[in-house]
Design a protein around this nucleic acid. Structure first.
Length: 355
DNA sequence: AAAATCATCAACCGCCAGATG
DNA sequence: CCATCTGGCGGTTGATGATTT
């Protein structure tokens, strides 16, 4: 029970992936795409279960992953979303282009949780740490009060997240085209650090370009890659929480990491990959245009977002100019089918010597 | 310098839901 | 319907490197 049939088969490798395995999987997926994961290992010549291959691809090999530290903006967004969504990591990850649920989950458990605790905030409830009795009393109170309310955008947006309602209720925030004015900027700036959704606004709209991950995205990926079909293309640069660019990404001593980074660096030169199968709607989201309807039908936050995004009519011109267009298929004809072994033994190996 | 402890994160496990026959 | 397969998700583990003692 609970165990996939593929995993029951004997002699399947487990544990860390070797560079050779990464190469096989990557080359297979880029060549044939993802159909049935259970058939991937056999056809790719891997002694792994399909599930393991899927995980490896999603969490590590797929070309659109953004690696490196989380920006402050991303951090705020994760906290905000966690307050609304709880441990629904996949949904949270869907709001952060290039990040995986696993990555966010790890970041939460290893870093954000402690950070909140230090601030005297219960990471589970996002409320000040209080005694258990107080909590019980408060929970009873909460069940009576304020459910989340969604108002039509034309009337302003009231987002109530338990005890920290955020009212967005004038044309500064929403004028039919969702223009962000200086007024709204001020409000955002003075927001409660843990105000749910306000960070989300910032992130979606990229209002703070100094720390905006989308801008970093531009700098790190677009700026260093002359062609890009989709989103985060690999780059040796990464940013720390304050937007400082570093080459920390290559500090990873794991050989598989190295080869994968190299691999992705190589692939970035002609990335025609726009959609990785299995990612569902995330590609759309990565492109800056949400298609929440695919997976999320009733979630209040997502419904809220749909309203906002639809209202904008996307204001997409700049994104389109940046070629962040949603495509429905992978153009593997433009994707490099290189041999990682060759890369490692060739000139690209010099990359590692600089580390 | 060595041992102990801590932090990080890739990968696995178990469960669930939808698809399929 | 029912059984099976498959993809997806969240929780957890264990290996590894970093830091502290």
């Amino acid at each position: 029970m609970g165990r996939h049939s593929c995993c029951l088969k004997q002699k399947l490798r487990k544990g860390l992936w070797s560079p050779e395995e990464d190469e096989k999987l990557f080359n297979y997926i880029t060549r044939f795409g993802v159909g049935c994961w259970s058939s991937v290992p056999k056809q790719a010549g891997l002694q792994r279960c399909g599930k393991s291959c899927r995980l490896r691809w999603i969490n590590y090999l797929r070309p659109d992953l953004k690696r490196g530290m989380f920006s402050q903006q991303e951090e705020d967004l994760i906290i905000s979303l966690h307050e609304v969504l709880g441990n629904r990591w996949a949904q949270i990850a869907a709001q952060l282009p290039g990040r995986t649920d696993n990555e966010i989950k790890n970041f939460w458990n290893s870093c954000l949780k402690k950070k909140l605790m230090k601030q005297g905030i219960d990471p589970a409830t996002h409320k000040p740490l209080v005694s258990a009795e107080d909590n019980i009393i408060k929970e009873e109170k909460d069940t009576i009060e304020t459910p989340s309310v969604l108002l039509p955008a034309s009337q302003g947006i009231l987002v109530s997240s338990q005890d920290s309602p955020l009212l967005v209720n004038n044309s500064n925030y929403y004028d039919g085209l969702f223009n962000v004015t200086e007024t709204s900027r001020e409000v955002f700036v003075s927001k409660n650090a843990l105000d749910p959704l306000s960070s989300y606004f910032e992130f979606q709209m990229g209002y703070d370009s100094s720390v905006n991950p989308m801008r970093q995205f531009d700098q790190n990926q677009v700026g260093t890659n002359s062609s890009y079909g989709f989103s985060s293309l690999p780059c040796l640069n990464s940013s720390d929480h304050h937007g400082n660019v570093s080459v920390a990404e290559f500090s990873d001593n794991n050989s598989a990491s190295k080869i994968s980074s190299l691999l992705k660096e190589s692939s970035s030169n002609s990335s025609g990959m726009s959609v990785y199968p299995g990612a569902g709607c995330q590609m759309m989201e990565n492109a800056g245009f949400s298609s929440w309807e695919c997976d999320n039908k009733i979630d209040p936050l997502l419904q809220f977002q749909v309203n906002v995004v639809k209202s904008q009519e996307f204001k997409t011109s700049s994104w389109q100019e940046g070629q962040f267009l949603t495509q429905n298929s992978i153009d593997f004809t433009t994707y490099p089918l290189m041999s990682l072994s060759e890369d490692l033994t060739g000139a690209n190996f010099n990359v590692f010597q600089h580390m």
